[in-house]
Design a binder for these strands. Structure first.
Lengths: 251, 251
DNA sequence: CGACCACGGTGGTCAATACCACTTTTGAAA
DNA sequence: TTTCAAAAGTGGTATTGACCACCGTGGTCG
């Protein structure tokens, strides 16, 4: 069989269209209209449905708003950033702050029962525990405790973490790509250790984030426990009433 | 011109399809496959595109997962409920609990500087302040303090709030439809009043939700301040790494 | 001059069709 | 019986064509 150039379309027309529209948006001001769907289709040489699919994405992400009968417009920068951030670094940047990190400790211990269950490894499995102080604009923001199976990151040392993002490190040095995760958020108060590290009074209100992430294949990569200062960190979400469906049936 | 039944399609084929599939899902167990897109199209008498659009919705909401080349399957009940809930009642139901409400107080006071700013009214404007205890499965869950301009809800009394949802009341009696809102979440600890009302120890960790909602026209409707018990209420979010676009450009 | 209405353009929905990449199944060959 | 390659079925993408509801506007009529 001839290897006839039937390569996988790494870039689909849809994603291509998306990129083009993104470029377009960057040149426009908030409130400006983008070309009509039909026009875009003609300009970019794709069908209207493809354009719509691409725009659907951007609308869902809040970059555009559609007004039926009127047009599609560049929207107000979304106030509520998606809660599904990827990393501390990115999160802080989005909040307009300069992120930094200081590694407080790095040691290897057996997973133990609790952590073993979270990471889905045997309790005796060696696990690297990394404690980092997270800074934003040179002020303490959070304490983060990472737990990673040692066999995933052989040879990692504290210096590696100072500059690069941990996720970048995982990807570039170890070829581990985080695909998804689940995170729980609870209110808590700081204990003595956390208070002194963060420089806040004992029993200050704080967020407790617990995150477990995994690769696309479903392998658990890390478990992270973070304490965020309640006086500096705040979650903002936008609420949008779903129209229609005034209440789903439950059995 | 003849009034040829050109009525507005209040239910689109897509939403119709969505409902049918929801019915279908209810009869299946987690992990079961639903009929193929082509099959569904034939069965329901709609095109595959319509089926896909309906399934897109359900996949996005986490009820279904697609496996290319294999089929579409009923997914694990979504662990991460959307953070953008609309009301306490709905939120609790989604968590599988029975919501209830007890009105603790209802009085009218001048808005004052702070509240006036939040509601965008004059500081002397009369504002109704409603305090409610929110229950889930007959246990205290939260304290909620509503602030609404009195002129919006003339004649409202405490009894009105016991059965119906406040939002339903707004819609049905006053014709006010909430369209969007913005909410901030902070960690805090309960004060004496909150502790005794909720039945938790003084200075227990809690979530502080502050929500301001508005109509589609942008008119501020209400400002709500809620204290949620940290030991009973927890936020869970799902993190999904966006593939591609390894970082959007910022100007 | 003002009010009204028809028209063109826009997004919203839908159909029918086609091809691709991937997974599962199947059946023939070893 | 085992192995493995082809076939069948699935979701993923894309095109073309069509009609609808809605919005803004410009022209017309009073």
């Amino acid at each position: 069989m001839i290897d006839s150039a039937v390569r996988a379309p790494v870039v689909t027309k849809q994603s291509e269209t998306r990129e083009r529209v993104l470029d377009l948006i960057e040149q426009l001001a908030v409130g400006d209209a983008i070309p009509s769907e039909r026009q875009l289709g003609t300009d970019l040489g794709v069908s209207r449905l493809t354009v719509r699919a691409a725009l659907d994405d951007l609308v869902r992400e809040g970059l555009l708003v559609r007004r039926r009968g009127s047009g599609t417009f560049v929207s107000e920068p979304k106030i509520a950033q998606e809660l599904t951030m990827t990393s501390f670094t990115e999160d802080m940047r989005r909040r307009g702050m300069v992120p930094a990190s200081r590694t407080l400790g790095l040691r290897t211990v057996p997973a133990g029962a609790h952590l073993g269950r979270l990471l889905k490894v045997s309790p005796s499995e060696p696990v690297v525990v990394i404690t980092r102080l997270r800074l934003a604009d040179r002020e303490t923001m959070a304490i983060e405790t990472l737990h990673v199976r040692e066999s995933l990151i052989p040879g990692l040392n504290a210096g590696d973490l100072e500059q690069r993002s941990f996720y970048e490190l995982l990807e570039q040095r170890y070829g581990i790509v985080i695909a998804s995760g689940i995170q729980t958020i609870e209110p808590t108060v700081t204990n003595e250790e956390e208070s002194s590290a963060l420089g806040v009074p004992l029993h200050s209100p704080a967020f407790l984030f617990e995150r477990t992430t995994q690769t696309r294949a479903g392998e658990i990569v890390e478990h992270v426990r973070s304490i965020y200062r309640g006086d500096r960190y705040r979650l903002v979400t936008e609420l949008n009433r779903r129209e229609g469906r005034p209440g789903r049936r439950f059995a």
